[in-house]
């Protein structure tokens, strides 16, 4: 039984301009101890998906799913209190912006110990001891004196380490990292990623790594789902995805990797942007930006076609049409 099992999840927001479907019928499964990568551009619904799993969708959003289970418990039927007991304890999350994701008015010690107080019901001295251990674990020097620091006194990388310490404080079984390195310097990115993976291995927790960076996924994830405009367009093992991408969007993302464009004068890009609230095309959502789009792609919605190693949402997958991204 997978740890997280989601079928046909949709998240709809009611806005002034009408209903907007940010996530459109996606399936997601994560096994215990597995690393799943979710890749996609800005606006592809990655973050909304993770917020839906956490139960953090704002009031103007509606979450529907055919199945939404964590460790066999149906998330849709939990009361708010039961749900809160799960979030922050068994399912935890690290966000993109470490500088704004920590409360500027409280010390980092307070913010770490708060979870321990709420979920683990630890006493004051135990909380303090655990917080120091956690800061040590995430590689913060002089952890004891750092407890009384405020977020503005630490660098972005250090703050992200604090966020990670907070997230793993109650030994979660699933950690969702939403672009955890995007806001950081390149030199720090690698350190934070390594830290996340070390913790994942050491604790055997499942990790959903959300990113727009194919390179990050290549190094970390065992399985990858590629999202586009609220849909999963391709999902398969990381190795197969990198060697035999089926969806033209995946292919284009891979082409845009600098290390794959060696010898070319210009880095290939994908023209246009992810369609927004008012300009969703008919048929395949990727068709206006797709080099291989046919009439059928502009007319008919595309289901996810399963194949030997995964699934792709395309009538004319790359390997079959010969339009290999090379």
């Amino acid at each position: 039984m997978p740890l997280l099992d989601i079928r046909n999840l949709s998240v709809e927001f009611s806005t002034r301009a009408g209903k907007f479907r940010a996530v459109d019928g996606i399936d997601l499964t994560v096994d215990e101890g597995e690393v799943l990568g979710i890749v996609g551009e800005s606006g592809s619904g990655k973050s909304v998906t993770s917020l839906a799993v956490m139960g953090l969708i704002a009031n103007n959003g509606r979450v529907v799913a055919d199945k939404m289970e964590f460790d066999g418990r149906d998330l849709r039927t939990l009361t708010e209190r039961q749900r809160r007991n799960l979030t922050g304890k068994d399912v935890a999350m690290v966000f993109q912006e470490p500088m704004t994701s920590l409360n500027p008015c409280f010390t980092i010690g307070f913010q770490i110990m708060e979870s321990l107080k709420v979920h683990e019901k630890l006493g004051r001295s135990d909380r303090r001891r655990r917080a120091i251990e956690l800061l040590e674990k995430v590689g913060i020097p002089a952890p004891e004196s750092r407890l009384s620091s405020f977020p503005h006194q630490l660098s972005g990388g250090m703050n992200q380490r604090v966020m990670i310490a907070m997230a793993i404080s109650c030994n979660p079984r699933l950690l969702i990292a939403d672009e955890p390195t995007t806001a950081l310097d390149v030199t720090i990115q690698k350190q934070i990623l390594d830290l996340l993976l070390d913790l994942q291995k050491e604790r055997g927790m499942a990790l959903i790594l959300i990113t727009h960076d194919m390179g990050v996924v290549a190094e970390t994830a065992r399985r990858v789902s590629v999202m586009y405009a609220g849909q999963v367009v391709e999902t398969r093992s990381a190795r197969d995805l990198f060697t035999h991408p089926q969806h033209p969007y995946t292919g284009a993302l891979l082409d845009a990797l600098p290390e794959r464009a060696l010898g070319k004068r210009r880095l290939p890009t994908i023209p246009g942007v992810v369609p927004g609230i008012s300009d969703r095309p008919n048929g395949c959502l990727f068709n206006p930006r797709c080099r291989f789009a046919q009439d059928k792609c502009r007319r008919e919605g595309v289901p996810l076609f399963p194949d030997e190693s995964g699934a792709a949402r395309c009538f004319y997958p790359l390997q079959v049409t010969g339009g290999v991204a090379a």
Binding site: L56, R84, T87, T100, F106
Partner: peptide, 26 residues
């Protein structure tokens, strides 16, 4: 609407605690 309020909710804190402590102070 700040990020750190989302963080507080992601910790599984009760709404009252999120509002009265994390939001109010700021």
């Amino acid at each position: 609407g700040e990020d750190y309020i989302r963080t507080a909710r992601a910790k599984g804190l009760a709404p009252l605690r999120v509002v009265a402590q994390h939001a109010l102070r700021n």
